[in-house]
């Protein structure tokens, strides 16, 4: 006991120095670039990219308004709102879908023996061995008009013409689901592993069906895992760039594409920065929500 107390106090004393490398990393790689983004969003765009050091709130104004070409009047424009709204909706849909697929998967894995579970975790993480780009292109080959699925369906005589799957919202959702599913499964699994199996038996003993055990005993007791999983899926899905671009065919713009556009073709760095700031705010909101869930669970 005394050893534990000593250990505690000594960690508390040296806590700051132990955390120093992490703090330095967070400041150098996180806070400083973010500060740049915030500052850039308040400057004037230079003609060929970059910024001129003239303060201006134009970038933020153009998130909601555009200047009329002739009268120079400010006119409300919902373009940005639509794109952000679409991104949030798609990220939410991805999160829900990942949970719907990830929870049964994690529940199945948790019910295996610890040995078998290790293999399942390995299987879940194998896709990470190659880059996201390669995996997305592979998915393109599978769902394309001349792809694996359409090929099989046509050869089996079920359909005559290929079903359009690529370059649709379905393709984007599928791609996002495929990319982020492990981020949902792993936190859920770690929560489920901590769940006392006797609670499930107690539920069955007290006349609960399997369905009600899942809803009324398992779900409430793995809320921290659900919050973590949803956050880990929602946040990258919101800012995703590669998947919607390749599988969506660039037909409908997402927040990620939009930001990339401002720094690239449009050469409007302040606007791109302002859009990034908005995206960061959405992410912060998601964090706050998930923290709320976790705190209520504790």
């Amino acid at each position: 006991m005394a050893a534990i107390v000593n250990h505690r106090t000594s960690t508390a004393g040296s806590g700051l120095s132990l955390a120093a490398p992490a703090i330095v990393l967070a400041v150098v790689l996180g806070c400083i670039p973010l500060a740049f983004v915030v500052v850039y969003s308040l400057l004037t765009p230079a003609s060929f990219g970059g910024v001129e050091w003239v303060a201006s709130a134009n970038a933020y104004r153009s998130l909601l308004f555009r200047k009329d070409l002739f009268s120079e009047e400010l006119v409300f424009s919902p373009d940005h709102l639509m794109i952000f709204g679409r991104s949030v909706l798609l990220a939410l849909a991805t999160t829900v879908l990942c949970f719907a697929v990830g929870f049964p998967t994690a529940a199945y894995m948790a019910s295996r023996s610890p040995r078998a579970r290790k293999w399942w975790v390995l299987a879940i993480t194998i896709p990470f061995w190659t880059s996201l780009l390669v995996r997305t292109l592979a998915l393109m080959l599978i769902i394309g008009d001349q792809g694996l699925i359409n090929g099989l369906l046509i050869r089996s005589g079920l359909i005559n013409a290929p079903v359009a799957m690529l370059y649709t919202d379905f393709a984007v959702l599928l791609g996002l689901l495929y990319s982020f599913l492990p981020f949902m499964v792993l936190p859920l699994l770690s929560s489920l592993e901590k769940l006392d199996p006797r609670l499930l038996e107690a539920g069955a003993d007290l006349y609960a069906s399997r369905w009600r055990i899942a809803l009324q005993i398992v779900l409430p007791n793995i809320r921290p895992g659900i919050a973590a999983g949803c956050l880990l899926v929602f946040v990258p899905a919101l800012g995703s760039y590669v998947v919607p671009l390749i599988l969506g065919g660039g037909r409908s713009m997402m927040a990620g594409d939009l930001i990339a556009l401002q720094f690239g073709t449009s050469r409007n760095w302040p606007l791109g920065s302002a859009e990034s700031v908005v995206l960061v705010l959405f992410v912060a909101l998601a964090f706050a929500l998930s923290n709320l869930v976790r705190r209520r669970a504790a």
Binding site: E201, A202, D205, I217, N221
Partner: peptide
């Protein structure tokens, strides 16, 4: 178990923490 009119007090109680 869910259909037996039998209830159990578990060794570690297995109370629902939520």
């Amino acid at each position: 178990a869910a259909r037996r009119p039998i209830n159990t007090v578990f060794q570690n109680y297995a109370l629902f923490p939520h």
